[in-house]
């Protein structure tokens, strides 16, 4: 699982965690029907943190980050993102969504739009950015993820890794303060995983607040300042990556790590 080694080591000195709170989750519970999927989640994320969320499938890790931009609705507790509490007030939801970027396992690019249009759509229609400016910014981010030459192609003509990098660029075009990654490399083959992870590392080096659900433990060791282990809908253990991998405390974590490392 952690077979991918990155070419260059991430420069941790550039990754500064500030005192400012980006996300605060207090006593959050969520049910799918009668199934209690998230149980009493408490989590505070500071601006600039890179958090990797690990755990077996069905442990609720994807659901947790999907609650942060309200793709899933929580039933109890509080989620405050950048000072805005997520309630059923749609205005707050839209505000949070435009500040939180999200990258999906299956990319979810819009297949009927070119790469450039994928990147400029939300800035133009949500942020009301003038088209020219939106296109310049999109090209800037496409250069950053190293695929400016694909700008006028359609997503269906790109490889999986390229599509995922476009998806990252698309999120970045909204100038988010927080990025959520929901298993961004799980649908990719090894050569492509590497190119996506390198993009994510460079993002971390620029000080982006990141929450990343992933099985790439190499990425966690390299980039994360905190690893959270979830099982059965609750946070079982969290620690700095070195401590987490070398000295896991709970039996469940030890078992999980012994299986994937």
């Amino acid at each position: 699982m952690s077979s991918i080694t990155l070419d260059h080591h991430a420069d941790r000195s550039k990754m500064q965690v500030s005192e400012e709170v980006a996300i605060e989750i207090n006593g959050m519970n969520k049910w799918y029907g009668a199934f209690h999927v998230l149980r009493d989640i408490n989590l505070t994320v500071n601006q600039g943190e890179r958090i990797v969320i690990a755990g077996p499938s069905g442990s609720g890790k994807s659901t947790l980050i999907r609650c942060i931009n309200r793709l899933e609705e929580h039933q109890e507790g509080q989620i405050i993102v950048d000072g805005t509490e997520l309630t059923s007030d749609l205005k707050n939801v839209d505000k949070v969504r435009s500040e939180v970027g999200m990258v999906f396992q299956h990319f979810n690019l819009f297949p009927h739009l070119t790469i450039l249009e994928n990147c400029t759509l939300a800035p133009i229609w949500v942020r009301k950015t003038p088209k020219k400016e939106a296109e310049e910014r999109a090209m800037h981010f496409l250069e950053k993820v190293k695929i400016p030459e694909q700008a006028h192609k359609y997503p269906g003509m790109l490889s999986g890794g390229q599509q995922q990098r476009v998806a990252i660029a698309r999120s970045l075009c909204m100038m988010p303060r927080i990025m959520l990654f929901d298993e961004p490399t799980s649908a990719l083959d090894p050569e492509m995983i590497k190119e996506v992870l390198e993009t994510m590392v460079s993002l971390a080096e620029e000080g982006m607040t990141m929450l990343c659900v992933t099985h790439e433990m190499g990425f966690a060791k390299e980039v994360a300042n905190r690893v959270i282990f979830m099982d059965a809908g609750q946070i079982v253990e969290q620690n700095e990556p070195e401590e987490f991998f070398n000295n896991p405390q709970s039996e469940r974590t030890k078992l999980f790590l012994s299986q994937i490392l």
Partner: peptide, 21 residues
């Protein structure tokens, strides 16, 4: 696919804009 709705939501498009675009 559901992912299209989710991607539109995640980018902050409201219902009508997501439908239209």
């Amino acid at each position: 696919p559901r992912g299209q709705y989710e991607a539109a939501d995640a980018l902050g498009l409201d219902y009508w804009k997501a439908q239209r675009l």
